Amino acid sequence: MQTASLSRRSFLRGGMRAVAPAVRPPWARAEAAFLAACTRCDACIDACPTAILLRADGGFPGVDFSAGAGECTFCGECVAHCEPQALVRSAEGGAPWALKAGVGRGCLAESGVECRVCGESCPVGAIRFRPRLGGVALPQLDADACTGCGACFAPCPTRAIAMTVDRVANEFPTESER
Rank of each mutant, 00 (worst) to 15 (best):
T164I: 15
P26E: 14
F11Q: 13
A33D: 14
A30N: 12
G93L: 06
C118R: 03
V117F: 04
A101V: 01
P61M: 07
M1H: 12
E114I: 08
P25C: 09
V88M: 09
C146Q: 00
A151W: 00
A69M: 06
A51K: 15
V124M: 03
A69V: 01
C115W: 05
R105V: 13
L108A: 05
A36C: 01
L54Y: 11
A151M: 06
A109F: 05
E110P: 00
F34A: 04
E77Q: 14
K100C: 09
E177R: 14
L108Q: 12
P96I: 09
V88R: 15
I127K: 05
C44N: 01
L54T: 08
G112R: 04
A101Y: 02
F60K: 10
M1K: 14
A109M: 10
E114V: 12
M16N: 04
R17S: 12
G134C: 06
D57W: 06
A86C: 08
R29C: 07
E175V: 09
A154H: 09
V136T: 10
R29Q: 10
D64V: 02
F34E: 02
G14M: 03
L87P: 02
G58P: 04
A18G: 10
R40W: 05
L138W: 03
A51E: 10
E83H: 12
G106S: 14
C156R: 04
C38A: 11
A145S: 08
C115A: 09
G148I: 05
P61N: 06
E83S: 12
W27S: 07
A80K: 15
E114T: 10
P84Q: 11
G106C: 05
S111M: 11
C41H: 02
V117G: 08
R167S: 13
L54R: 14
G14T: 05
C146N: 00
P139G: 06
G112M: 02
T174V: 07
E120A: 10
T158I: 01
S176P: 00
L54H: 13
A36T: 04
A80S: 14
N170K: 09
T158V: 11
R9G: 08
A18H: 08
E171N: 14
E177H: 07
I161H: 04
A69E: 15
C152V: 04
T174G: 11
R24E: 07
R159S: 11
C118F: 06
C82V: 06
G68P: 04
R17E: 15
V23I: 15
C48A: 07
A160S: 15
A28F: 04
R132C: 01
G94F: 05
D142T: 10
R24C: 01
R13M: 09
S121K: 05
R17C: 02
R130E: 12
F60R: 09
